[in-house]
Design a protein around this nucleic acid. Structure first.
Lengths: 367, 367
DNA sequence: GCTTTCCTGGAAAACGCTTTCCGAGACGCT
DNA sequence: AGCGTCTCGGAAAGCGTTTTCCAGGAAAGC
């Protein structure tokens, strides 16, 4: 109305009631207040259109209702879908979501965690591939330990080589399935387009793929690994370079759908028929994958579910005492530990997300 | 390290300095502090890994460094791109972004504004089409007036029929260009797939299109308007129904690219050649539009720029006194007021975003 | 009928920070 | 040398809540 905010004190005096009573009626809840006073307070609050000051509430010891979400970039469909799932659960719990975009910079990621720590967010979700850099792991580890020590919860989505609860897509398994499927189709000379190996996700997908290829009897001389950016542009460049190099393959596996989209564009520009001359397959099954022409074969991950599960993990009612104890009997995470990295505490909740091969029109037998 | 947070008081005592001095060194900035003390404080803060409590800072009168972003759904590419732009500017200003997904519910939109008000966010960005419902306009208007009255800034992205700063895409103009382009190509029987008219964006795009068609001499009997959901599914259903009805058109204009994607799928399933039998054109130029087959003709809006401009609008240094005065000489918004709704205060900053017709492969002459 | 227990409202103490106001030295001017 | 001015550190007053503790009245027990 006029300048400044309506405070609880104003509501209380308007209702001719003490501050304590007004607080109890509007936010407390535990204690009983005589109906008559209760109504007076409620009426006054409505009349003045009182909105509690979240900062004051947080300071005074009330629980904060915000969760931080740190990721590469919301406009990347992979992250957009995960965010969507996470926000659904957040909304159900009446929790506000704070976003941080790192654009794949480890420094920014750490900075955001520190910022969110300052905001006393109830929890932090670290979405997307972790970095393998030791300096990053040390710093981020310290930051997260401090956060947890002071009562914050956190969870990773995707592998991070750091202790903590996590939602883990079966990157290796999915990539291996791609390898076997391509071999089954008859491909023998195969290319992989990956990103920088400092990203865990890339390492697992490319690694799992190459290993499975070897296991299926494809000589490593017939496997071409191309490392570019982990982005649409990177996929474009990878495919372009592959074609320029004489296209030493009949199938191309891209470490993500986004890369595959870039690759598809390059292949179209260079006149390479997909899947006629080259089979193409991605990873993630982002929503547009099925709308491309040819419809993109890929490995489906339930991205929204990943977001949902992670948010549930950190919002799952903790015992209020904030001792650094981590996971508390999450029931449905089938805990097969594939030992991808053994340095995690066994108490941490782990949710595995299965990867499902989806063959659409972009893959076929070799020419 | 141990339970609980490190407070400024602890830092101060570790540095053998008063609270005031510690505050001045770490956050204040205005006042000068002797280098020796300054270093002591800095060292202590680092050693204890001090993180200021943002809530306490906000309460004590320091500026809040968060901005709210309220929109339909981040996983919609249109909103994802806008969000990306907004986050870039936010990051430059060291501002944190809080996200709210309304899923096109006016109630949720109002609820989020109220929540963000409670968070004392520095500003709120309302992204995406406003609703035409009078009840919504009244409530939202009151909420925003209260917010502004207490020093908050806000801006709309897209038309909202409410006073306030805004970043406005030229929906009518773009739609009119589509109409003229289709007529120029030779189309005479034309269909439009729109969403519910309670969305301003839909109203302007469909309205502008139909009017321009009339102006170009296309009899209204030859124009088919189909109203479905403003979503991919809605586009699918619209196209499906159109085909079922005997396809009384040689061109289909969809009120958004997302709808066009759905329509394209339906047309493919029903065996309708695009653009051979039916020309298709969307609106927005979301990033994947060019990757579809056929590459989607559309009206390009610089979505990231829209996000950027809006964020700049609300972050543009305000005079600290928070009197409800709104716009302060934004230099480069060319203020042509097309009078789409006359009830706004002239002081509000308005940034117009031009719409540019992009003809790709999904449009051609009629069969 | 008097004491003991509930029950409920109010006063006041945090919560962690910013900022205003003072006071004490240091310096410059006459 | 004396006085005024300037600089910079510290004490303390909030900021808007929650929550603990206390007091007074009503209900209950003997």
């Amino acid at each position: 109305m006029d300048g400044g905010y309506v405070t609880l004190a104003q509501v209380a005096s308007a209702a001719r009631v003490s501050l304590a009573t007004a607080s109890r009626v509007l936010n407390g809840g535990a204690r009983v207040v005589r109906p008559e006073l209760r109504d007076r307070v409620l009426a006054a609050a409505r009349r003045l259109s009182y909105v509690p000051n979240a900062h004051a509430q947080a300071l005074a010891g009330g629980a904060t209702a915000t969760v931080g979400l740190v990721m590469h970039d919301v406009s990347d469909p992979y992250f957009a879908s995960i965010t969507r799932g996470a926000m659904q659960v957040a909304a159900e719990h009446g929790v506000l979501v704070v976003l941080g975009s790192t654009f794949r910079s480890p420094e920014r990621e750490i900075e955001y965690v520190s910022l969110l720590r300052g905001q006393r967010t109830r929890a932090i979700l670290l979405v997307g591939s972790g970095f393998t850099d030791p300096g990053y792991l040390r710093e981020m580890g310290a930051e997260l330990a401090g956060y947890q020590g002071s009562g914050g919860r956190y969870a990773f989505i995707s592998h991070h080589d750091l202790p903590g609860a996590a939602v883990l897509p079966d990157n290796r398994g999915g990539a291996a399935e791609v390898a076997r499927a391509l071999v089954r189709l008859g491909h023998r000379r195969i290319a992989v387009a990956g990103g920088p190996p400092r990203l865990n996700t890339v390492e697992h997908r490319v690694g799992g793929f190459v290993e499975a290829l070897a296991a299926a009897g494809v000589p490593s001389a017939d496997v071409t690994v191309v490392e570019r950016e982990f982005s649409e542009e990177g996929g474009y460049v990878a495919a372009h370079d592959l074609v320029t190099a004489g296209l030493p393959a009949t199938a191309l596996f891209c470490a993500s759908d986004v890369m595959a989209i870039g690759a598809l564009l390059a292949l179209r520009e260079r006149g390479v028929a997909v899947p006629g001359r080259l089979s193409l397959i991605g990873f993630d099954d982002i929503p547009i994958a099925r709308h491309l022409t040819p419809a993109l074969s890929t490995v489906a991950l339930d991205l929204e579910e990943m977001g949902r599960r992670a948010m549930e993990l950190v919002l799952a009612c903790p015992r209020p005492g904030a001792d650094p104890d981590g996971g508390d009997g999450q029931d449905d995470g089938d805990d097969r530990d594939t030992g991808e990295s053994g340095d995690r505490e066994p108490e941490d909740s782990r949710v595995w997300i299965p990867a499902r091969l989806v063959l659409r029109d972009s893959t076929g037998p070799p020419p």
